[in-house]
Simulated scan of single mutants.
Amino acid sequence: MIEWTVIWPFLGVSMLLTIAPGPDNLFVAAQSIANGRKAGIATALGLCTGLIAHTSAAALGVSAVLYGSSLAFQAVKYAGAAYLLYMAWQAFREGREPTGALAVPRQKLSSLYVKGIVMNVLNPKVSLFFIAFLPQFANPEAGSMIAQMIGLGLLFMAQALVLFGLIALFAGTVGHRLWSRPSFARVVGYAKSVLFAAIGVRLVFAER
């Protein structure tokens, strides 16, 4: 069982880590601006769903295997980078479309939800972060370490979902106002392309 004295410090650190500029919140913001607030929330749900895999892996020790195996780490890393670069290419094609073609709803919420899951699961840095972060707030004398780490992971997911949701609402509101400008759709397509490509390249050079 998680000790009460640990919960608030854990949530405080988790919130700071979540709102710090990074691939996940930038991804949520980009989708919200491009596709609306509901799209940002769907993306946030996908990203947080992906955290279930990382929490389970950290609690069960699978992340330790990933950390110890250079081959496994590289395989997951390059798969994630390839997926991000593929999304960058799709976004680039959006930017080349005539402005009028981009004025309609662009992506299904289910598709964005799945993209959020895949992007999160295929980022080995998240697994390594969880295996390094969660145990710091677990106490072997307080009961099962697995149960504590799963509980902490769920808390992290909950606060991340709330903060990502707020980012989605804010970015979606800004995007809604900007969509009235004829050239904005093209700018969004190219901006998303650069963002996804930058995250993908960063992942390629990520070290354990």
Rank of each mutant, 00 (worst) to 15 (best):
V194K: 13
V76W: 13
T43W: 01
A88C: 03
S111I: 06
L122K: 10
M145T: 15
V201I: 14
I131L: 10
F205D: 08
V162K: 00
V174C: 11
M15R: 10
E207K: 09
S111R: 15
I146V: 11
Y113Q: 13
F137C: 00
Y83I: 06
V201K: 09
Q74V: 14
V76M: 09
G22F: 06
W89C: 10
T5L: 10
I33K: 03
L195S: 09
E97F: 06
G12I: 11
A185Q: 13
F164R: 09
V114T: 11
A44R: 03
G68P: 06
G36T: 05
G46V: 07
E94A: 08
A168H: 04
F133A: 02
L109H: 04
F129T: 15
L128F: 00
S111M: 15
V194N: 10
A44D: 04
N25W: 01
S110W: 13
L161V: 10
A132W: 05
L161Q: 03
A81G: 00
W8H: 11
Y83A: 12
L109W: 02
G80V: 11
Q148L: 02
A59N: 06
V118K: 00
L134K: 02
S144L: 09
P23L: 01
I52Y: 12
I2C: 00
D24S: 05
L47T: 04
N35G: 01
P182A: 15
I41E: 02
V162E: 04
Q159C: 11
G200S: 02
P135T: 08
N139T: 14
A81W: 07
L51N: 07
S69V: 04
L155S: 14
A79C: 10
R37S: 15
L154C: 15
S14C: 01
I33F: 02
S183T: 04
A34M: 04
V104T: 12
Y67G: 13
A168I: 05
S69P: 12
F92H: 15
